[in-house]
Amino acid sequence: MLPGPFAVARALATTRVLDAPDLEDTLEVLHRDPVANAFVATRVEAVGLDPWRLGGEMWGWFDEDGQLESLCYAGANLVLVNAGPEAVRAFAERARRQGRRCSSIVGPAGPTAALWALLERSWGPARDVRGHQPLMATTAPSAEVAPDPLVRRVRKNEIEALMPACVAMFTEEVGISPLAGDGGLLYQARIAELVGAGRSFARFSDDGEVVFKAEIGAVTAGACQIQGVWVAPEHRGRRLSESGMAAVMEVALREVAPVVSLYVNDFNVRARAAYQRVGFREVGAFMSVLF
């Protein structure tokens, strides 16, 4: 029986927007590397491929046999997944035609660098390019650093006390305030979501100020990713980031996922050393292009 015109069109397509029937194949691609793909996988596992619920489109690249091999999440971030040279070129062409709608490009360093080289002329200049961000992971609690017993889950009635630390961390890390644009409504909603899910951790001083904080952001069955690590400036130099991370790692491994990961700027030598002392090891590298 000859395939209908729709089947032929699908077979001939190099890239297209994925939809509900593609969910199983999409998850198969994402699960090939649970650590590197945690950010995208957690969104797809939670809401599927509907663009409205996903917060963006999922583009798929198919090989000559019509098999889904590569993905590109096109939302607030543009993120490549398992993208070889042909897929990168195809995604770059689609992104160039659509125009920039994202605030950053983030993903595995090699493919992301190739993508940016193709997009820079039409999308540039970038506000910042971070070409090498070590991706680190661990499967065991820290053997050398004792968890800080004062680090605990943030309670819902502590969000107001937590927010200044979150804003300070974001501004230090990204270079702009998360309160710009919409006044921080989306950012505050995201923090509240993490607190409500029990994935925001902090150590508070006796007067209720945040001393250390971190969140478990992306969560899948195979891996989770720690983000937003921050120590109040007046408390830095006391290795509170190490003991704090040891505490968050312990909970994450016990209750959330078998692998805990994070990525860090290569120029942040002190943070990289701290994560290594806690037990993280480099397993890859990311790249970020910030607009």
Rank of each mutant, 00 (worst) to 15 (best):
V248F: 07
G284I: 00
E215H: 09
L80P: 04
D33H: 10
L262H: 00
F291A: 06
E45D: 15
G284L: 01
A252S: 12
P34D: 09
E172Y: 11
L162Y: 15
A87K: 06
I216D: 02
H31L: 03
A114H: 09
F91D: 08
A180N: 12
M287D: 05
R10F: 02
G131N: 11
D65P: 02
M245T: 10
I226Y: 00
A223Q: 04
N157W: 13
V151F: 12
L118Y: 05
A232K: 05
E28N: 08
P178S: 04
E57K: 10
S142I: 06
V219N: 00
V174P: 05
V283G: 01
M136D: 01
E64M: 03
R53C: 07
F170H: 15
D182Q: 04
F201V: 06
P3F: 08
E45K: 04
F6A: 15
L253I: 00
A246G: 02
F6Q: 14
G181S: 13
V154Q: 07
R43K: 13
D266W: 03
R199Q: 12
G183L: 04
A13T: 05
G56H: 11
A197G: 10
P233H: 04
G75W: 09
L118K: 15
V260I: 04
P134N: 01
R16W: 07
V231P: 02
A90C: 04
R155M: 14
L162I: 02
Q188P: 00
P178G: 07
P164H: 05
G175C: 05
R153E: 14
P147D: 12
R270C: 00
P85L: 09
Q227P: 06
A41W: 01
R236I: 01
A192S: 12
L185H: 03
V264Y: 02
V256N: 01
Y263I: 00
S142R: 07
F39H: 02
V264M: 08
D182F: 11
L179Q: 07
W52V: 15
D206I: 06
T15I: 07
T42N: 13
V145E: 08
F212P: 10
H132Q: 07
P5T: 10
V289Q: 08
V219T: 11
